[in-house]
Design a protein around this nucleic acid. Sequence first.
RNA 1: GCGAGGGUACCGAAGCGGUCAAACGGGAGAGACUCAAAAUCUCUUGGCUUAUGCCUUCAUAGGUUCGAAUCCUAUCUCUCGCACCA
Length: 980
Amino acid sequence: MVTKKKVEQKIEQKQESNKLDFSVIEKKWQEAWEKSRVFEVSEDLKRKKFYVLEMFPYPSGAGIHMGHAFNYTIGDIFARFKRMNGFNVLYPMGYDSLGLPAENAAIKNKTHPEDYTHKSIANFIKQQKTLGLSYDWSRQINTANPEYYKWDQWIFLKMFEKGLVYEKEASVNWCSSCKTIISNEQAQGGKCERCGTKIEIRQMKQLFLRITDYADRLLEGHKKLNWPEKTIAMQKNWIGKSYGTEIKFGINGEYWNVFTTRPDTLFGVTFMVVSAQHPKLDKLVTKEQRKEVDKFLKKLKSVSEKELESLEKEGVFTGSYAINPVTGDKVPVYAGNFVVADYAGGMVMAVPAHDQRDFEFAKKYKIKIKQVIEPLYESTDGFDAFHKTEPKIDKEVVVAIIKNPKNLKYLCLKWKKNSWKTFVSGGIEKDEDVLTAARREIEEETGYTDLKFIKTLPGKVHTRIYHNLKKENREAHMSSIYFELNSDKRKEISKEENELHEILWLTDNDVEKLGIDEDIKLIWAQFKQETAYTGEGYVTNSPGFNGLNNEEAKKKITDWLISKKLGRKVVNYKLKDWSVARQRYWGTPIPLVHCDKCGLVPVPEKDLPVKLPEKVKFGEGNPLLTNKEWLDVKCPKCGGKAHREANTMDTFVNSSWYFLRYCDSHNTKEIFDKKKVKYWMPIDLYIGGAEHACMHLIYCRFYTMFLHDLGLIDFDEPAPRLFHQGMINGYDGQRMSKSKGNGVEPLETMKKYGVDTTRFYLMSEASPDKGFNWNDSGIQGSLRIINKVLTILDNLKFGRDSKELEVKLNNSIKSITEQIENLDYRKSTIELRELFDLIAQQKEISKESFVSAIKLLAPFCPHIAEEIWQKIGMNKSGKDFISLASWPKYDEKKLKLQEDSLSIEEKMIGYVKSITDKFPDKKNVYLYVMPFELGKIKAERISKAIGKMVDIWAVNNKAKFDPNNRASKARPGMPGVYLE
RNA sequence: GCGAGGGUACCGAAGCGGUCAAACGGGAGAGACUCAAAAUCUCUUGGCUUAUGCCUUCAUAGGUUCGAAUCCUAUCUCUCGCACCA
């Protein structure tokens, strides 16, 4: 066991042996960069721009953690790389400083949020500067600055103007701990994202941004994005577009709109379920059922406090009946705990025969189940699709294997029209896989041998039958397996018999016809009873629509409903409008005024910014309500009595457009100069955590689209390329935290090992998108290579390059260039290690090559690179930084060691001779070579050279003479050899 | 349930049809230097054994191929997102 003490001892010892005092050179170069304003940029139309951005941090009092260091190093390397490649690189930093946590922390520390924020930011900047990050600090922004949030308000007013802001009474997510409303995005899983408190649903008048107007564009825009697939999938899921039909159901003389994606099952509706949280639930409850319903609601409340998820589907009859618009049937209306109140009307039509959840509910409450879809037994997908795409395979025997949950299996083979045969009805033998069993059974039953396996194809049709079985039965599956008979046997089967096809699922009739044993009947029966059939099929029991394919039926039934004005086609989204108001102090004030006469009135643009009043009381409720002076204003419209909107904006507003402000961060006249934004935007590489997939990354796209529509910008996607960095955990694989004691402080680490070592280590442990577990002994490997580079410097002798070094260097330039471009930094650190290992072994090296090698190192270890750069005399003026030097180029011709000019034939002769020499008594030589080599080699020439009989075969020649299977040893350039 | 990505030597982690017993790092072992340690450098790190050799390995089982860690199929298993969405 290595104790912590031992490790620390080791570290101290190693530190003593450091070649340089890192902190001295770090400071030296950081100051030099700042003094010379190396990283400050301005628009230059002649140069290509590149915009690298990390998601700006929320400046907490705790300062930066290792995750920040990781994130920023990834961006910094890219920025430095692009800069050296001649790009005009915009790489800014700023602070997302408004928000609940600052307010809470300030209250806790008994300071004003503003002081808290200022201190935190100052601390952040100091820490970030020690990391050696190449930010253009002159463009820094801070969202808590009125100069910034003025433009939040300005955009808000524009949205108000365009009708994207509205107020409505709505059920909202209320966090009783933060004492504020929070958005759906922040209330995922029914818990407050910030504090984990369970969300309450309350009815309140609320301000919303109409983000749903952009739902389609947000989906459409995904096509343009080079984003992780997962993130796109998450957003799609979040936006949740679904097409369906809204159907009017009459209940107690009133129409209720119900959304469904399955209008084809309308005839199968046997009950309705309304959400237990539905605001209009009371209207449905009859006197007789009142008690029952109340009891149910009460129970729900007590249960939900404990465990909201994994609840069983429960409900209670309300006493009311709905009229099915197509059948005129009266069906009971239940209140249920599984229906979401504010999605699509809060009521569902239940079709127990074809929806699993409805099915379970119906079973529980003994409600009628009416089947209206007859499953498709004929194949539609798997098998046919297979034949359509691969029509060449036409002579196989087709076998379907049904493996049931009890691990019994059945083979059914169909080769003549309507002649089915069951082969197997026993269990699979021990140590025998399905395929072997299938082969064995077929051989036994048919007498055909030499079946050649072609392919296994999972049949969608088959699996569909089983996919609704309960989880414990999930092993059940079915597949089609194809065997081809060998050619002799194939002849025995007549042409007609060769046309084998269509075996996919067994209908009741099939089961009868086949005389299949009891077991499978049992499974079939079980299936029919215990699950709803949710697949495709033909419509039955639906007068007027019977016999239609269910997809057609969807259209026809919807059309019919439309014609009778009982329904309409609708598109539904899971995405809801963005509730933007927060009952808290530390946010952007909403520039609206409530006037008794005029209602909601926007603050005129000239009066912006509406600044946060300094004097407020923190405690219960919204602090802004405690400053009367600020609250009371005259109505901008009529001059009458009015008061300010006391809510502040959600903090996500601030981060929805900040990347645009960086382009022109000190503009006091307008939100930004269009020309400047046109030059810099969009963000060429955006780096940040995957946890923002459904919040910030949707909001900022929405804002960008809106500003595009205003005509301010000419693009509508802010960040075409997005990268998520991985998580850095403690050595134990757990999230770093003080309480667990597994945390590693970035500043401490950098003090111990040096900034460049830390950066190098962070990049060398894992690919940036994967993250890793921190490992104290691992960072010493990085220290080793840094020290090695410095040792090289000490013993440096310029001269000529060795061939080997030349090749390695050119390869390194090529691969590191590509790797950085792909953010595959880990591989680059390996390449750098190999390169400097080799340089260390050289007696001398050309200055040119050494310069290139140091340049390759520069993005990763900028301080050391600058120091070496200067020491070898490349920075005489003190301003010729390696940070601004040009990236090395490789020579295509020098990527490989020059091959000796021997032909393949000559090489082979040498190789074969070396073998034959050992076995002088063997007379015949058989060589097995790649097919493409065949033309380049002549048997006679080799024969002459080695003085033996030589036979050459292509390695894939079936007729070749090869008793020892030496052909399998053959490789390109090196033949397989058999001696006789 | 739906979706995404994995399982490689003692550990982390590359490789994604032939040049693979498998890069690189950590760890371990041996040696050089040293009075001694640390650092540094060299070597070893699947087995047989010292050979331009054989055998066994890249979750498991089959298959395709002259040739599979890499392709196909099935099975097992892990991690991570999202979920009563009608």
